[in-house]
């Protein structure tokens, strides 16, 4: 089931009995029909892998379970919304950027040190955010938020992409992250103390970059 794009900042999703959606707290703008919104303590994935639930406890990005029958409109804070359709592959995304996603997607968490965790390291070190990055895997759609519009940059062999960590939104595919402090970049990008990093993504896949160096 896909999200229908209403405007650059609003998406619509159909909810049917037996299907679950997850959304960020406060992301529901309007709905029709009989739809229930329940805070999701476990993060929905009621298993050992439900790491998002642990994040919820200490990261203040609670998820809601959306169930019932009807139509729900999602948006948040006037941020731009970008819909990413997954066909069996894995999306790596910061959980606070997740607006809503299909319950059919398997949720997981990447720790520091492995893929995605690099972002966690940057964020953790730089912005005091958590050390996890959320993964979504399977068939379904996710709506992610960005400050400004979103640019999709393909990553190919011999064609790495360098991204300002503050502008990084998400990535997918077989991608390796490398955090580096390029000579020159440190002085250039260093507006504050923390932006002295650049993120190098290589492999095969796609990186989503927002049109702003401002964190959400």
């Amino acid at each position: 089931m896909a999200f229908k794009i209403l405007t650059s900042r609003m998406v619509e999703a159909q909810v049917f009995p037996g299907q679950t959606l997850f959304s960020q707290r406060g992301a529901m703008l309007a709905y029709r029909g009989e739809v229930r919104f329940t805070p999701s303590i476990t993060g929905g994935q009621r298993g050992v892998m439900g790491m998002i639930g642990r994040r919820v406890a200490d990261e203040d990005t609670p998820l809601m379970t959306v169930e019932g029958q009807g139509t729900v409109m999602f948006g948040h804070g006037g941020h731009h919304v970008h819909v990413i359709d997954l066909a069996g592959d894995t999306l790596y995304v910061e959980s606070d950027r997740l607006l809503a996603f299909d319950g059919s997607l398997r949720q997981g968490t990447m720790f520091m040190g492995s893929q995605g965790g690099v972002m966690g390291m940057v964020r953790g070190q730089v912005t005091g955010q958590g050390l996890f990055t959320t993964t979504l895997e399977g068939h379904g759609s996710a709506a992610v938020m960005a400050h400004g519009g979103v640019l999709e940059l393909p990553i190919g062999p011999g064609r790495p992409v360098h991204v300002d960590p503050q502008a990084y939104v998400a990535h997918r595919g077989d991608v390796r992250n490398k955090l580096s402090t390029a000579i020159g970049w440190r002085e250039m990008v260093g507006r504050g103390s923390g932006e002295a990093f650049q993120l190098e993504l290589s492999g095969t896949g796609m990186v989503y970059v927002q049109a702003s160096e401002e964190k959400l």
């Binding site: 940059l153 790495p160 360098h162 020159g184 507006r191």
Partner: peptide
């Protein structure tokens, strides 16, 4: 300064 969000290819930066 700080206005670049991403790049592809080989770039050098000079303040």
């Amino acid at each position: 300064n700080g206005a670049m969000v991403a790049y592809e290819g080989e770039m050098t930066f000079k303040k």
